[in-house]
Structures are given as C-alpha cells and as structure tokens.
Design a binder for these strands. Sequence first.
RNA 1: GGGAGUUUAGCUCAGCUGGUUCAGAGCAUCUGCCUUACAAGCAGAGGGUCACUGGUUCGAACCCAGUAACUCCCACCA
Length: 889
Amino acid sequence: MNIAKTYQPTEAEEKWYQYWLDHKFFRSVPDEREPYTIVIPPPNVTGVLHMGHMLNNTIQDVLVRRARMKGKNACWVPGTDHASIATEAKVVAMLKEKGISKKDLTREEFLKYAWEWKEKYGGIILEQLKKLGASCDWDRTRFTMDEDLSEAVIDTFIHLYKKGWIYRGVRMVNWDPQGKTAVSDEEVNRKEVNQKLYYIQYKIVNSEQSIVSENSETHHSPFTTHYLTIATTRPETIMADTAICINPNDERYKHLHGKKAIIPLINREIPIILDEYVEMDFGTGCLKVTPAHDLNDYNLGIKHNLPVIDILNDDGTLNEKAEILVGVDRFAARKKIAVLLEEAGQLEKVEDYKSQIGFSERTDAVIEPKLSMQWFCKMEEMAKPALDYVLKGDIKLIPDKFVNTYRHWMENVHDWTISRQLWWGQRIPAWYNEKGQWVVAKTKEEAENEFRVSGLEFSVLTQEDDVVDTWFSSWLWPISVFDGFKDPNNADINYYYPTNDLVTAPEILFFWVARMIMAGHEFRGEVPFRNVYLTGIVRDKLGRKMSKSLGNSPDPLGLIEQYGADGVRVGMLLSSPAGNDLMFDERHCRQGSEFANKVWNAFRLIKGWEVNDQLENTNKVTIDWFKSRFSQALAEIESNFAQFRLSDALMATYKLVWDDFCAWYLEMIKPAYEHPIDRETYTQTIKFFEDVLKILHPFMPFITEELWHDELFGERSEKDCCIVAQMPEIGQINTQLLSEIETIKQVVTAIRKTRDSKQISQKETLALSVKVNSEIEYSDYQLIISKLANVGEFTLVNDKVAGAVSFIVSKDEFYIPLTENIDPVAEKERLLKEKEYLLGFLKSVNAKLSNERFMNNAKPEIIENELKKKADAETKLKIIEENLASLAD
RNA sequence: GGGAGUUUAGCUCAGCUGGUUCAGAGCAUCUGCCUUACAAGCAGAGGGUCACUGGUUCGAACCCAGUAACUCCCACCA
C-alpha cells in the first residue's frame, strides 16, 4: 500500500475547491426544491480576513453545506460592504503617501482614486474565504455600491422622505475631528479616562462694591465674594460659555439670582440662570453652560433661549470666535488656558478626575459634541414592528438572551443620523438653490421640476455634499442582493426571500440586524430572515479581544496552511457555543488536523483489506450494532443542529467517528494481519465509511471529498460528489443491542484493566469464564471479547472459579484464572472495598425508600428506579460476599 | 447610575420540566505500550465543598433571597 501515513491537506484543498467551482455546485437558481438561503454579512471591501470572519463564515458554510446535502436548494450570497468611513480613511492615507491632499481634489477626482483602490484591493477578502472552503454562489457576488444597490439606497431614501421619516435638522452630533464626519451614537466607544477637573473663578458683575462693603475683608465666606467658582474638565470651552447655571434652591447662591458673570480672559458678560438640572452637591454647584460643545448645555440653552457660540473648527482647532488661542488644537488649548487662568489668578485649583469620554470607533479620536446640520431618519414607527417580530418569535435570536437587549434598545430607540460628511458612499439626493432652499429628488431634472412646482426660484441647483451612513445601504442587503427594489416581483426575490439564517456578531445587533428587520418590514412587509445566530467575539487565550494593535491575532491563512482548512474549521467550532466568546487556542486547530488524520487512517486501514468471497460473515452483530449506534448519534446530531448547537453537533460527530467507528467498530471487525475479510463485512464497512464521510462533510469538506472519490467506493460519475450527497437518514435503533454492547465494552475494559494492574502483556492470551446471571447471550459476543481483549478460551460456567481474578459487569461474574499472579490478600482488599461502597450505597437508597414523605411525594417511576437500584446492589453484594467466602477457603 | 448576563475539573464548556450508583465531555495531566491504519496513535488512571451564605423541598449544580467577582449593553452629572 502506497498511501501517505498522514493526511496532506494543501493539494486536496486546491483541487477540490476548483472542482466544486468547475461543476457549479455552489450555484443556485430557483427551482422546485425548498430554498435555503443565507446572505453573508458583507465584510469591508478593503479588509482582510481576521479570526472573526473565520468563525462566522465557517458557521455559515457548515449550515449551507448541510442544507445542500439535505436536498435543499442552498444559496449563500457573498459580497462586500463599501464601509465609507474606513475605506475613505484608507484612500486618504494612501493619497497622503503620494503627497496628494484630499482637499486639493474635486469630489470626482477623489472618487476615481477610491474606485481604483477598490478595484485593486476589493475582493481580496472573498478570495481568502475560498481558502476556508466557503461554498458561496460567487456568481451572485454583490457590492453595496453596485449600481443597482446604490439606486435602491436612493429610492428608499426618497420613499422614507416622502413618508416624513427623513428630516433635516441642527443637532448635537458626535463629531469625529479626525475623520471630519459625524458618527452615530453606536459608533462611539465610551471609555473611562483620567482627567483633570479645573476650578475656575468667574467675576460677578456689579457685585464687587456691595459685597465688599457688606463683609469685612477678614471674614468672607466663599459664597459671598465677588466671584463664583465653577468646575469643568474642559476649560478651553469657557470662551463658548453663554451662561452660568445654578440650582434655584441652592441657599449658597441666592445672592447670585439675576446677576451676571464675566468669562475670564475674554471678559464677556453672561447671565446667571436658574435651573434644577444643576446638582447642588456636585462640583461647586455652579455650572458653566456651553451650548455649542455639550449636549446637556445645548438642551439647557434651548430651554433658556441662550445664544450658541461655536468656537471649534471641524478639525478640532479653535476658531476666531474663541477670540484667543485661535488655530490651536483643543487639547493644546486646554493646557494653555490653564496656564493663562493661573496667571490671571482665576484658577482656584485642579483636581484629578475620572470620567467617561467618547472615542470614535473608526479613528479612535476623542469625539467632540458638535452642532451641525444633519439628516435624520425617524426610528419610532419602524422600531415597533421590528420589535414585535422578535418578541412574537417570527425571528429567533440565538441564543435568546439577546432578546432582552434587543427589546431594551428598540424601546429606547433614537433617531438615526444618516448623513456622513464623506464622499465615498451614496450621495444624498437633496438639491439646494442659492438661498439654501432644497428638495429631495432622484435626479437634477426632477429636482428642478420640484422647484418649479413649488414656485421657488433657482438658477443652479447643487446636490447635497454628504453621503448616507453605510448602514443605510447594508440594511437593505437581504433584499437588494436579490434585486428586490429594482424589480420587486422577480423570481429570485420571491424564491429566496425571506432568507433562513443570518450569522453575525452581537455587536452589530442594532447597527445592522435590527435595521434589516425594519427594512424588511417596511419594504417587503416581511421578515428578512428567520433565525439570527449570534457568534461570540474571538479572543485570545488571555481573554483579550483579537486586534491588530495588540498583535495577538494569528494569521488565518497561515493557520490554514499549517493545519489545513478542515483542521481550522474544526478548531473554530470546537468551543464556540452561540453567543459565547471564543477563547481561541491554536491547540484546537491541531486537534482538528489530528482528527482529519484519524479519518485518513481509517481509510488507509479499510483500503488495505483484501476480500475473500469464500469467507463467512462473522460480524453480523457488530454490523447491526454500528447501524443502531450510527442512527442514535445521527439523531443527537440532528437535534443539536435544530437548536443551533454546532459545537455539540461537531463533538457528537467527532465521538461517533473516533470512538465508535474507529476505536470500537473497526477494531471489532478488523481481520488479523494479512488475513482477508469477508465480502459482506467489507461492503457494509465501506457503506458505513461513506456515511461517516457524509456527516463529516459540512465540518470538513476537503478531506471528505478527497476520500469520497477513491476507488474504494467504486466508480463515481463526474457529478457524484460528497458535497451534493444525500445526508443519511435516521434508521432503526435497537436499544437492547446498544445496551448489551455497552456491557461487552465494559467487560473488555475490565479485562484490559486487569492486564494493566497485573502487568500482563497484551500479547499474552487469557482465559475467561463467565457465570451468567443476566439475560445476555454471551455466545453472540464471544468473538468480540476475544478479539478486543485477546481472550483465548472462553467458557460459560455455573459455579465460581476458584483462584481466579474476578470482576462483575452488570450482574454477571467474570473469572480470569491467573495461577501465578494472583494475590489473595490484594484481591480480598479489593472486594472488601467494593463491599463497603455497596453497603453505603444501599444505606442511602434504603433511607430514601423508608422515608414516608419520599414514598408519598416522589413520582412512581422514581420510586421504581430506587427499588431497582436496591435490587441490583443487593445482587452484587451477594456475589461479592460469595467471592470473599471462596477466597477464605 | 440603570439593565442584562456569567461563575461547574488545570483550560474550554455540557448538564433540557429539581430525582439512575457520592456530577459529564473534549483538551491538558499521569502511567504503561513504537500491538504493521494512525506515537498527529493505543490501553488505562487521576482530577470538582457545582463562587459564597441562607431558605424552600422527602430530595438542590438546577428553584428563591442575599453576598462577592467578572463580562456586556444603556445613560447628559459639569
């Protein structure tokens, strides 16, 4: 036999992936079969594969391959996302390297570069997915900025605008001064940061004389001086203050009511206003109100009709409204202001202080609350039905603990800021005239028409500069990939939509999943998918999130090279229950590749057998047993899949293959070295092996396909492939046979243990006598025991065998005569120990049975069981006592 | 500050409506084997006060209350 001792994945993987592509096994078109559909969560078009993708796409591929093998018309739609902020940032960086600045380019020029970049790097990630074995229908690959998909975005924008759900307004937004764009609340990461709390004195107007005259210089309380003190973490914004606010109930500051204060350094007068919003016991009880740079202050400003002074430029530097430090960055300005205040004698003290600060998810810059004109999408009406779908169970979240989180979010939903100050994306279809009046329309011509209809004057219309948020295109993904907007009644959308399962990360449950549900309801009146499987975050062994900056993420393609795609897939799935974070450990991949090797070697064994047609089949019981065992395991696997318990399904498969098939079945039927095997056993075994390959295929597509085509299985037609084989069905399960074989296994194990403890070599043949007290026909199993435990003489006896090592399995007594090695003292000790245990056990069972309340309250089957436990224990005890007695003889 | 979740063997996790023989798996560990499918293997073994404290019950890893630690989400205390 000339087959490698170990499985070599690389070559097989390339060969079979190409074969599958060539034979269009991933291709799906509507037909009469039941569809099974997954749309990929589109990865960032310029991204590269990371461990999160590996996990996510392995799961999707397992589901898709399984559905395909169960006779469904499986369709997995791949694609990529244009990811405006991330991609635009990359393009800007690339241009910078070339010495080109974005602001020197026109929009068109910039977009030309961006598209070039996309053409060059876009889709790398999809190529990487192929290495993993992803069975996507590549003919359906979509990009969120494909013409049709962009058009859908514009059409839905107009649709929602007409419904009154999209509006424009000045809002406090999360401004990213580095990306120079607004980001949504969900894209802001809050982190606790060590800061300084600055105590700054503001003079009070016209109070100097009166207070000073009323109070002698020696006694003056801090509350009646000619100044007040505020505490702030952001002294650089004092120039934007438009009021000081105190709590009207604050006794300390009654004298300030109706007064004015003076901003230090720039000496501008601002009113002192009263509002219960101010906490009296925080800081000094005086709050500086800066409507342009703080959301609370903004709201306070609206309430009290305060002016808004914005002193920051888009890049975070101070503008001329600040009067001082113009052009200085906000953080540098903070330090300088502190110095200036100190010099002016108006900085009372500085304290260390911890508080939460927002950081941009994309650029990690500190978020600046900023007032700006933005586009918004109302969420309330869309959130309601989207919540109901989940609460009613039309959409299942897996695991369901996410339902609570989902509900909480949907009940407290904020309007969605959909505009982004970027160029890479779908440009908002709004058109302005010279006066800033505007309409929403698909084209310039339509817009001009709108203007005419409404009687507004214009000479030239300009389109809105902003693009929509990327999620405003990806929320349409399950519909737009099937052209459900362009052609709402086409064959594809009618057949594939709603899709079945969505596999994604919990952190985008609201960004993306919730919004897809809203869009599904709004634009199709239907859910977009039935089940949402939420994967965990891939972390390293120390529990840290895998990230580029930490450098703790292994290179996925490197892993595939090392362990094979099958090995890595198994490794990813071994310990990743839905919703739990996955503590990635390369050892799991090794376990996966070792498993592949095990399968490979099972193949080598069978492949090496020679058949002799003259031989009689002596393995009927074993074959029957494995049939039952296979069905039993299959039922378990099916049930695990039904509950999306993929790692359990994999583990059940793993154990079936390794333990039941390899360790027990093959060892039971294996002919002696260089002996032939009978035809029937051979044929059955090949059939079993083929079934094993099938159930393994979704997890390990490559090795199974490789083996599938071996001549061992006879002639295969070109299209007879494991990938499209029909999954085995659950057959008859003979539970009696299963339990009897379990007993036989215990007998074998007991004999092996005896060998171990008496240091008898496996090569030495032993004799075995059985005193049968149960119903088991040991003659049926004699061959199995003999083979697996190297037993020669096998006798059924009616009496105890003296001078032998004994053990009991279920009720039956086994004796191995061992004249040389037997040690009566040790044997007695062992028996006494077992007796002691049984007595204790009986005591606890009897305690239960004699407890009146137990007998009255416990269910009948529980009592019956206790009685059985008692009887079994008594039987065993009797045998042990007899054995002890015979030892004493 | 509010809400949710987690805590079971060295590690990662099962344990369904409380009830089979002092709690299970995989990996890791230990011991013995290079037995012609596989040392990426085989055979065997050890390992747990089910976070803690109370309670309910004939009976609790499971139900209830409290405590502690960790994780995540939400939130406008300067």
